Amino acid sequence: MRVCVIDGRGGGLGSRLVSGLRETLNLDCQILALGTNLAAAAAMRGAGAEQVASGVEAISKLAPTADVIVASLNMVLPGAMLGEVTPEVAKTILEARAKKVLLPLNRVRVEIVGTEGRTMDALIDECLSRVRVAVQGACRA
């Protein structure tokens, strides 16, 4: 089972997700970290991802190989993250056969009904729980 974390900018969210997944999932699961830039990729490598790559080409090539994709909602909104999310990145994620577990961060003034009042920590905990359920059995989580 291959779990892919995708992040941009400084990789703060991605590194927290990788670290949490490393603690949550058995070693049978491979954690692939894809950054929209080198800083995000390096942060996720430091958090324990086994395979790391960066850039639009890497995301386009490797995201479709994942069984589960974990990212913020911003990663499917072209132009988000100060323009780091290209239309190609958003399309690649949306068209991937993988289950997508997206955190509803509200940084581009997109309002997601039903997510009010949730802290980043609560969102990350819920995300890790949903990934654990998604891979249950396959990775003996």
Score class of each variant (00 low, 15 high):
R2D: 04
C4T: 08
C4V: 03
V5M: 05
I6W: 00
R9H: 09
R9G: 02
G11A: 10
G12A: 14
S15C: 12
G20L: 08
L21F: 09
E23T: 10
L25T: 01
L27G: 14
C29V: 03
I31W: 01
I31A: 01
N37E: 07
N37Y: 00
L38C: 10
A39E: 15
A40Y: 01
A40K: 04
A40C: 07
A40W: 02
A41G: 13
A42L: 05
A47P: 03
G48Q: 05
A49K: 01
S54F: 08
G55Q: 03
S60Q: 11
T65Y: 02
T65W: 02
V68I: 15
V68L: 08
I69T: 10
V70H: 03
M81V: 13
L82G: 05
G83W: 06
T86R: 03
E88M: 08
K91Q: 14
T92A: 09
I93W: 04
E95A: 11
E95G: 03
A98T: 07
L105T: 07
L105Y: 14
R109S: 10
V110K: 09
E111L: 12
V113F: 13
G114S: 08
G114L: 11
T115L: 06
E116S: 15
E116P: 09
A122Y: 07
L123N: 07
I124M: 12
E126W: 05
C127A: 15
L128S: 05
L128G: 07
L128N: 05
S129F: 12
R130M: 15
R132Y: 07
A134T: 10
A134D: 08
V135W: 00
G137R: 10
C139R: 01
A141M: 09
A141G: 12
